[in-house]
């Protein structure tokens, strides 16, 4: 991280700003799990409508699947948090 002809102050501000933009972009990963969990919940609702007796099993299966599907979104969140709070690209 050594840009020629730029001061230390500018450098840090530039890196912080780019980190914030990167964090914002990383959280876009949340779209995927949102759609996936919605599809799972919709199908679960349809299943309960067809067979109300199996409500308990359907709900627990749905929650398990949704929690696993959530992982990719959480990876995005993790990257965003690293960029925002740990500042891995800062020089000092």
């Amino acid at each position: 991280m050594n840009f020629t002809g730029s001061g230390e102050m500018f450098n840090d501000a530039f890196i912080l700003g780019c980190s914030a933009i990167g964090a914002g972009l990383a959280v876009i990963a949340g779209i995927g799990p949102g759609v996936g969990q919605g599809i799972a919940a919709g199908h679960a609702a349809a299943a309960v409508g067809r067979n109300p007796g199996a409500k308990g099993d359907v709900t627990s299966t749905m929650l398990l699947g949704q929690a696993v599907a959530e992982t990719t979104g959480l990876y995005g969140l993790l990257v965003a948090m690293l960029l925002m709070f740990v500042h891995p690209f800062k020089t000092n």
Binding site: A67, V68, E70, T71, L74, Y75, L77, L78, M81
Partner: peptide, 10 residues
């Protein structure tokens, strides 16, 4: 481990 960690951390 990342799944558990990221959920609780968030």
């Amino acid at each position: 481990s990342l799944r558990l960690f990221a959920n609780v951390l968030s």
